[in-house]
């Protein structure tokens, strides 16, 4: 399979949809992509660049969505979540409970996918802070096929969503997306131990678990997955390892799993609560935080 960036695949599919559906409106905070130039050229009356102004990005998008447009707001992940968190809380989370709005917040740069750019561009808080908001679905895909499969849902499901895209082109983990609405998928079977990961960490889990009898689960609809089905999958599992590119123990994937799977031993893996200033590859940043491939293999040897 080809290597592709999530945003390129998503935007290409959206570009097609914008031909068919005159209700789709794209708002960027001066953040681009090659395919976005096409969207801007072909749909100049449904594209606006609000400039480097994330608070206004959210507010303008909300105004458009209240008027019935299906809106896509687009910026770098840490900025579209944290620079304008109160706009999201007041004008999306709170207001959408009273007035319908279809607004899709697209953040590019999940976890440490911008590893060289340092702590401002590392996005390790968003899973927990976005998950805590009522009325907002959090989508954390692990590959571009899942991302592509979500496009239809952004149109059909008329409610607010946060899409957390990786910045780095990757191959798909599986060739086919099935039962998307389950919100999770089993990447690999295993008998007693399971890794539940999200985003890029699902790719990594699949890689490091290859020689172990370990189930790998990719959870991508963080607050909208089928819990009963997940529990059924995990019926014989005794130990669950959560794995995320996010700060550990403060409300992200680990908190979700810890609160739902109370009868199992759960080990939480994520970033320590500190920022990493030393630049390097993504794997280097992971190693600095005890999440390198070798660290994970070592843990699996001990547990599985």
């Amino acid at each position: 399979m080809q290597t592709k960036a999530m945003r390129d695949v998503f935007l290409a599919a959206l570009h097609q949809k914008m031909h068919e559906d005159e209700n789709l409106f794209f708002v960027s905070a001066d953040f681009g992509a090659p395919i976005l130039d096409k969207i801007r050229a072909d749909f100049s009356n449904r594209f606006i660049n609000v400039g480097i102004a994330e608070q206004n990005l959210i507010n303008v998008s909300v105004g458009l969505a209240l008027e019935g447009f299906t809106v896509y707001a687009y910026a770098i992940a840490p900025f579209i979540t944290m620079r304008c968190y109160e706009q999201i809380r007041v004008n999306i989370a709170i207001l959408s409970q009273l007035r319908p709005m279809n607004i899709n917040l697209i953040g590019v740069g999940a976890g440490v996918s911008y590893s060289l750019s340092g702590p401002t561009h590392h996005c390790l808080e968003d899973l927990s802070i976005m998950r805590t908001l009522p009325n907002l679905e959090v989508f954390s895909p692990s590959d571009y096929l899942l991302t592509e499969a979500y496009v239809e849902r952004t149109i059909v499901q008329k409610s607010p969503k946060y899409l957390r895209f990786d910045a780095v082109p990757m191959q798909p983990i599986l060739d086919l997306v099935e039962n998307f609405d389950d919100g999770f998928r089993v990447l690999k079977a295993g008998s007693k131990t399971a890794i539940i990961a999200t985003g890029y960490m699902s790719q990594k889990a699949q890689k490091v678990a290859v020689d172990f009898d370990v189930m790998v689960i990719d959870l991508y609809l963080l607050n909208a997955y089928d819990l009963k089905k997940l529990q059924t999958c995990l019926k014989n599992i005794e130990t669950v390892i959560t794995l995320e590119e996010g700060f550990k123990g403060v409300g992200g994937l680990d908190s979700e799993i810890n609160s739902k799977l109370k009868n199992k031993q759960v080990i939480n893996l994520g970033f320590e609560q500190k920022y990493t200033f030393e630049v390097g590859s993504r794997e280097f940043v992971h190693e600095r935080n005890g999440l390198g491939e070798q660290d994970l293999v070592k843990l699996l040897k001990a547990v599985a």
């Binding site: 507010n59 105004g63 458009l64």
Partner: peptide
């Protein structure tokens, strides 16, 4: 400080419609 930006979006939407 929230109303003006949301109203900008509404104004833009009304013009587009």
């Amino acid at each position: 400080g929230h109303g003006l930006g949301v109203a900008c979006g509404m104004a833009l939407a009304l013009k587009t419609k």
